[in-house]
Nucleic acid binder design. Structure first.
Lengths: 204, 204
DNA sequence: GTTTATTGATTGAACGTTCAATAAACAACT
DNA sequence: AGTTGTTTATTGAACGTTCAATCAATAAAC
């Protein structure tokens, strides 16, 4: 049933099928036959469009990172104030975006995370994304905190976000996005309140 | 070279070899032969002592969890005060114990974490350990905070600890235990300070 | 001589990749 | 409008590899 212009459609189908398969049986048992069956195509097509299994996995991780990045950017662009707290809140809420946090994406994310320890290409992707998050947080915190404190705040908040993700992916019920958001935002309040206190009541 | 009473020695050798192999090439490529070579024995011995690869992996995860538990228990037993803060600090410091945080153990830990999403036995082990940590934190926080706040504090601190672990396992340089401890303890101070403030200066 | 410990070749299953075959869609030409 | 040739899309069987598990053989210790 070949039609022209199938490439972008098939690529997307196969990426989605990859996440579905990983969600279902894990990365170790996500064979190309299982992924192909999920997408309703034959196994051979994967090598045709992605050059092999590794290419498909890389493309899948790329998409997850892009989606996350987009979710954060969209929220930051929609802000109507420019305060550090508003920006950081947007970053937090983007990280717990529905599309990111739900089922397949979250488990695939964690699977790639573990896998990236020993696959240079995945490690590179993960590293770039990580540094960007850290740099953004650092920049915003720096506007209201001394450098050392800003770096610690950025490290702490990044760890908190990742930890909530991790625990969300592991619990069978999935991540409670609302609770996670609340905990992260509360922590952010504490990080910033510490500053407010220093500056609004310095004589203490 | 068979001597009698080799069983406990071989079991420990193979468990250590498993962590070394996972640290070296990751869980996916930690084959029976590679693990056996690390331990300086033949491949067949693994099935002999552990009934198969799965048995060895389960025993390895069990040991990591036991070591972690012991590190925490030892620090709590060594306390000379009974305050919630002292107990929770001991839990934090136990989690960032040297033997836990260094190289092989940390990467193996994360690998099992990801793997436990789809292997019921590993999931069970991870779940038991998780609930114990949460219950302990909850109990200590409950001594100085209202129940809802205590639960949130426990969830937040658990997420922070896991997040720091996760990021430590992923960075090529390994986890900076000192920084991690500092961030977690600082967060703990904030969680408790919030309470102190409410109770020691209620008229404010 | 029996038990305990260990080896390593063998087996069978599973996987990713390749490629010749096939078929629909399109283009050119009558 | 119909025929023919070319391109694009897809299949699935065959191939070679890799792995975990098995087990008969072996050797030290008792």
């Amino acid at each position: 049933m070949p039609k022209v212009g199938m490439e972008p459609i098939r690529r997307q189908q196969l990426i989605n099928a990859t996440m579905a398969a990983i969600d279902e049986v894990g990365l170790a048992e996500a064979t190309i036959m299982r992924i192909a069956r999920h997408a309703g195509v034959s196994a051979g097509i994967i090598s045709h469009y992605f050059g092999g299994k590794d290419g498909l996995l890389e493309a899948t991780m790329r998409q997850i990172l892009t989606d996350l990045s987009d979710a954060i950017s969209a929220r930051r662009r929609a802000l109507n104030e420019d305060s550090p707290k508003a920006h950081i809140s947007a970053i937090i809420e983007g990280n717990f975006d529905r599309t990111q946090v739900t089922g397949p994406a979250a488990k695939t994310w964690l699977a790639f995370w573990a896998s990236s320890m020993h696959k240079p290409m995945l490690q590179r992707l993960q590293n770039v994304n990580d540094r960007r998050l850290y740099a953004n947080l650092c920049y915003q915190f720096r506007r209201v905190l001394p450098q050392i404190e800003a770096r610690n705040a950025a490290r702490g908040l990044a760890a908190m976000i990742d930890g909530l993700w991790l625990r969300g992916a592991l619990t069978p019920e999935g991540l409670d996005a609302e609770k996670a958001r609340h905990l992260a935002l509360h922590y952010l309040d504490q990080l910033l309140a510490h500053h407010e206190y220093q500056h609004s009541a310095p004589a203490h």
